[in-house]
């Protein structure tokens, strides 16, 4: 039993990290001036950890997260998903990659208001036109139950509290069992109690050896949940609790 778990851990450690950024830069046009928001940043995210990226407002956290999620193209640099370079993928392949490899949890829950809770959750599995596999439906119900949302399967998002909506977003992010979960200030709109539930959940999810959870925040109260703390300022990493390994891509 124990050896099995150990073996799993080793296997996970051996396999390539969920995501690796190499020399990532991003420029934005600020009126007439081209401003560099991310400055050749190297970062590697490991599975089985909750990584918190912290930094002052405007430091580039969200920009970094959207690049990690292929919602934004970097101006320079390379991205690897599970060891495979994906920087030059077409927008269609990136969309599929997002669907399979990445789950998003946003600052505010962004459920589609026109769809029921269960339909929102099944969206990532069916948005490319395929029908939802039975196993995915079962998984949805399992996850909803796990997050205490069993009674809201057919509810509309507006009928739920913000904390409940955020938990539905988490279920949706997990439905395709992605190796990478990206969260941008997922608790900033929630009260203390809901925050605790959401953070607990994220922490629990990060314990799975095949999954990495990245959480962006500027709230120091969240730091204790982190396995690893990365601080960025002005588009560059200024602190990484996993010293020595910072920015060194293992290929």
């Amino acid at each position: 039993m124990i050896s099995e778990i150990v073996e799993q851990r080793i296997k996970a450690a051996e396999s390539a990290p969920p995501i690796q950024l190499e020399g990532i830069a991003r420029d934005f046009f600020d009126g007439k001036v081209l401003r560099r928001v991310l400055k050749k940043l190297d970062l590697e995210i490991f599975a089985g950890e909750l990584t918190i990226i912290a930094g002052p407002s405007g430091s580039g956290k969200t920009t970094l997260l959207t690049i990690m999620g292929f919602l934004l193209q970097p101006s320079e640099g390379r991205i690897f998903i599970q060891g495979r370079e994906v920087t030059r993928f077409s927008s269609n392949r990136l969309a599929t990659l997002r669907m399979q490899k990445i789950g998003f949890v946003f600052q505010q829950s962004v459920l589609v208001p026109a769809l029921t809770v269960i339909d929102n959750i099944l969206l990532p599995s069916a948005i490319q036109g395929r029908s939802v596999p039975r196993a995915v439906k079962a998984r949805a119900r399992e996850l909803l139950e796990m997050l205490g949302l069993r009674d809201y399967v057919d509810a509309m998002p507006q009928q739920l509290s913000l904390g409940q909506q955020q938990r539905v977003s988490i279920v949706r992010a997990l439905i395709n069992d992605p190796p990478l979960l990206l969260c941008d200030e997922p608790t900033s709109a929630l009260d203390a109690e809901s925050s605790a539930i959401v953070l607990d959940t994220l922490k629990r999810l990060s314990l799975e050896p095949t999954r990495a959870v990245v959480l962006v925040t500027h709230d120091p109260r969240v730091f204790p949940f982190a396995d690893r703390l990365v601080k960025i300022e002005d588009g560059a990493v200024i602190y990484d609790s996993r010293q020595g390994r910072q920015g060194v891509p293992t290929s």
Partner: peptide, 16 residues
């Protein structure tokens, strides 16, 4: 707008 952005974020291609 927001719904279409969300759909893309969770894996919808342009054609979807």
């Amino acid at each position: 707008r927001r719904d279409y952005a969300v759909l893309q974020a969770i894996g919808a291609r342009k054609r979807d």
